[in-house]
Design a binder for these strands. Structure first.
Lengths: 340, 340
DNA sequence: TTGAAAGCGCTAACAC
DNA sequence: GTGTTAGCGCTTTCAA
């Protein structure tokens, strides 16, 4: 390992000026009308000695860090976020960007704190699953022309890039699936949150319920309760509303709690109670019976997320985009009346 | 949002020199015998105007980026890694470090490529789940005195920080649990890999088997096969060795494949075949029957990982440490002879 | 077409 | 105790 090369060394070595090297390295050879031959020679040499420009010097000079911040609810909860993380990294690296991550725990103050921690620390762009109430922080990022892509849930008051799914329609579709399978008393278990994805899923439920004129059963849980607490909340909700014959869980973690609650009540799925959950995962696939889900198109979401971000960063596309993809109802054993 | 402050502005504003400000900001006030009063005043002002030093200027000057790279097999596979990611971020942030991540897919060339991509790009330290064959790259990081912490599996040829669990003992213990529950033909399904954690788990199995003088059944899968392929590999292994009455899966994802295989063979757990898997996750907790697992102490592992890294970075501790924590056998329904 | 030089914001050796 | 100043490696304006 020789000592670190600098652009100055390259110039010296090749007997040309540092400027020329810089121009060539930054793809401005043509623009600056530097000779093909010289360009070639420099590029070859740079390759040979494996020279990599110092990012911090570049950053100091240009004000760009080539770092994107991925701020999610919890990278270890909700597999969705880890999957997105996985899928965007490669594309980012290939464009010379690195990704730092942080988790907000869905807490407004924590998110604000994190944005404060990272802003003025040269983060070029933010991909965020916003908790409620951080509109001001986001707006101030936007004001400074720092690209922001919101994911999973939107902040309607803001004019900001957003990538998400059709929460309302896909929930309606799932409820209608239950209705058309003969279920009459369909409950909706969600968390008490005004986040758009949750509101839309609830609206989708209410629309399907209203359209078919059946009774509505809604249970809202507290996100910050312990899982155990929420499991028993669900259990007592189901046991005080014994007419419920089907239940929709509005996120994957609520689905997991719900399965526990149903197990604790010794109810059979789907004979006693049908089940549909949002978000697919192994547990739902391999549960007995397997669980019907509304699955998010994670690869497509990720592609749009990183593309939007990179385009904004490279100023190829400074418009604001809202990208809304369809979700997929995957029908499994848990949602059809058994004909054993 | 006013324009960005610089340390120079602070000095000017307060009528003192930039050096003094720098010293105070870097906690060298005492060392440089700067008056309490002035120190106080500067700190207060800095707080007031919410001044944050420009990290890239600092980085350029000091050669440190305050960035740690977390290089895992796949941040979205194996929940273990996402959990570690989650648990180390807060501690890192509190010490002024940011974490970038990348996934190797357990491929040697990809890992080498990533290290090449990031080295010379001022990453202060690396936390790595090393694929086989990257000893040279790691060694060259160590040679440059860049702190490295290996996790999950070790590279025995290297003198390097490592945080992992007692793979051998915990596997033996799990096998002995099966033996003492009366199972006679216990299989071990793993991937074909020389990684230490896999080798140790196999050794633990072989030790327990040898100790009790029973027959050994080992199936090695190919990591790079499709999941479907491996599911049917397991199924055909189990159906050509019908005497097998218990099976140990050496990782969580093999466990998931194994459950599918067992389901496809319509075998009952544990009546026809008992099951134990490495690594706990929701699926195992809530499966019917629930699955006995060897669980890794993720929070403790994470604490050690980030502590080791931060101590090395801050040069509080430049020794090499190998930290090996016990794993926990969590006995559930899948591993005891049923007495229905 | 190419080169010289200013300066991004910071640290730290050195001077006073 | 505090100030002056020389760079860290790069980009980019301006001059040649």
């Amino acid at each position: 390992m020789s000592k670190k090369l600098s652009i100055r060394d390259i110039g010296k070595e090749l007997g040309i000026s540092i400027t020329t090297v810089s121009f060539i390295l930054n793809g401005k050879a043509r623009e600056k009308r530097i000779s093909e031959a010289l360009t070639e020679k420099v590029l070859k040499f740079v390759e040979e000695v494996n020279f990599k420009p110092n990012m911090m010097a570049q950053g100091l000079r240009t004000g760009k860090s080539k770092i994107i911040c991925l701020m999610v609810e919890d990278i270890s909860n909700n597999l969705l976020f880890a999957q997105v993380a996985r899928l965007i990294e490669e594309e980012a690296h290939s464009k010379g960007y690195r990704i730092i991550y942080c988790s907000t725990d869905n807490k407004t103050e924590k998110a604000i704190e994190l944005i404060r921690l990272f802003r003025d620390r040269s983060i070029d762009g933010y991909i965020i699953t916003p908790p409620e109430g951080i509109e001001n922080e986001i707006q101030s990022l936007i004001n400074e022309e720092i690209p922001v892509v919101l994911i999973d849930r939107n902040l309607p008051k803001l004019k900001c890039n957003y990538v998400g799914i059709e929460n309302l329609n896909s929930t309606s579709q799932a409820i209608n699936h239950l209705i058309s399978n003969g279920f009459k008393n369909i409950a909706f278990v969600t968390i008490n949150s005004d986040q758009t994805q949750m509101a839309d899923r609830l609206a989708g439920y209410e629309k399907a319920i209203a359209d078919s004129g059946i009774k509505s059963f809604v249970k809202k849980l507290n996100f910050y309760y312990t899982p155990e607490n929420n499991v028993s909340e669900i259990a007592s909700f189901l046991s005080t509303n014994k007419e419920i014959d089907a239940v929709f869980f509005s996120t994957n973690y609520i689905g997991v709690w719900g399965l526990q609650a149903i197990k604790s009540l010794k109810l059979n799925i789907p004979a006693d109670i049908a089940v549909v959950s949002f978000d697919d995962q192994d547990l739902f696939k391999f549960y007995s019976p397997s669980i019907t889900v509304v699955a998010q198109p994670v690869p497509e979401l990720s592609t749009h997320i990183i593309r939007l971000m990179l385009n904004a960063l490279q100023e190829k596309d400074t418009d604001i985009h809202e990208i809304i993809l369809p979700a997929q109802l995957i029908i499994r054993e848990s949602s059809t009346k058994t004909v054993y």
